[in-house]
Amino acid sequence: MRFKKQKRHRKTVRFFCVCFGFRQPFKVLCDGTFVHHLLHNDLTPADKALSNCLSAPVKLFTTSCVLAELKKLGVAQSASFQAALKLAIARCDHEKVVSADACIAEVIGENNSEHFFVATQDADLRKKLQKVPNVPLIFGLRNALFLEQPSKFQRDFVKSSEEKRLHLTEKEYKALEKRTTSVSANADEEDSGDEEGLGHHNPGLQPHNTRNYSGKERDVKDRVRFKRKKAKAPNPLSVKKKKSHENPNRASGKVSLF
């Protein structure tokens, strides 16, 4: 089960890296609910727990509005507030403090230009951010962390953007049309110039496609001829030696009279 979860997480991370240009170390934007969940379930150190979830190094962020909200909750969330103070602060540019979910939604914006992973236990916030094309979401369940798979909206957005890249835009189409017309016009001018030059007979000129070949070039054959393989002599080591037909008597030194 754990292996399947890690495989699913790696596939989701690869989707966002390839389609939206996420790069390591991944930046994770945490809200107060997620920090509280990490402390309550003893998922510390937080950076190690999240790097195990994403199988990559991470850097944790929060916002000043999230810190202000945790501080307002008083003693009940004092541990979460102290833990959140250790995280890096993402710039939110709010003069007045707003709610944590509104602040995170505004930091993400319409295109998540900072490439944040958003870690939250707020189901409504996750549902809202699923409609932003390039926002990966992380949440906790008991003592485990999960990376949500891309939503249908995110997959459809990637598919439509790929189809758009395959077709020319109106501006590109006009530029291509203008270029083809100019090229064809130049070609027509060259053809007309050639016809005018051939129309006036000049004995000193020869047709454009004629060439003066030397004798060697005339003898060159167009077709490539391949050498035929000739039969080679048999291997002398594999041939049997001829038997000698000598007279046995002559070999023994006796002469036969009859």
Rank of each mutant, 00 (worst) to 15 (best):
N52R: 11
N52W: 06
N52P: 01
N52H: 12
A56V: 08
A56H: 10
P57F: 01
V58A: 06
K59C: 04
K59F: 02
K59D: 02
L60N: 03
T62G: 02
T62S: 08
T63N: 02
S64Y: 08
V66A: 11
V66C: 13
L67T: 06
E69K: 07
L70E: 04
L73M: 11
G74M: 03
V75D: 15
A76F: 02
S78E: 10
S78Q: 11
A79L: 10
A79M: 08
F81W: 09
F81K: 02
F81C: 07
Q82D: 05
A83F: 06
A83W: 01
A84Q: 02
A84T: 09
L87A: 03
L87H: 03
A88D: 10
A88W: 04
A90F: 05
A90Q: 10
A90T: 03
R91Q: 07
R91A: 04
R91N: 04
C92N: 07
C92Y: 03
E95M: 13
K96R: 11
K96N: 12
V98K: 09
V98A: 05
A100W: 03
A102Y: 08
C103Q: 05
C103G: 06
I104R: 03
I104G: 00
A105M: 10
E106S: 10
E106C: 04
V107P: 00
V107G: 00
I108E: 01
G109W: 05
N111V: 08
N111W: 08
N111E: 11
N111S: 12
N112Q: 07
E114W: 01
F116A: 00
F116D: 00
F116M: 00
F117T: 00
F117C: 00
A119T: 01
D122S: 03
A123H: 13
L125K: 01
K128R: 11
K128N: 10
L129I: 01
L129V: 01
Q130P: 00
K131T: 10
V132F: 04
P133Q: 04
P133N: 06
P133L: 04
N134W: 00
L137F: 07
L137Q: 06
I138L: 06
I138Y: 00
I138H: 01
F139C: 10
F139D: 08
G140H: 09
R142S: 15
N143L: 05
A144G: 09
A144C: 12
A144R: 12
F146E: 08
L147A: 05
L147T: 03
E148M: 07
Q149I: 10
P150C: 15
K152W: 09
K152Q: 15
K152N: 13
F153V: 15
F153M: 12
Q154R: 15
R155M: 11
R155C: 13
R155V: 14
F157D: 09
V158G: 07
K159Q: 14
S160F: 13
S160Q: 15
S160L: 15
S160R: 15
S161N: 12
S161R: 14
E162I: 14
E162P: 04
E163W: 12
R165F: 15
L166W: 05
L166C: 08
L168N: 11
L168Y: 14
T169R: 05
E170H: 14
E170W: 08
K171I: 15
K171C: 09
Y173Q: 14
Y173R: 15
Y173S: 13
K174W: 09
A175R: 15
A175G: 12
L176F: 06
E177W: 09
E177T: 13
K178D: 14
K178M: 13
R179I: 08
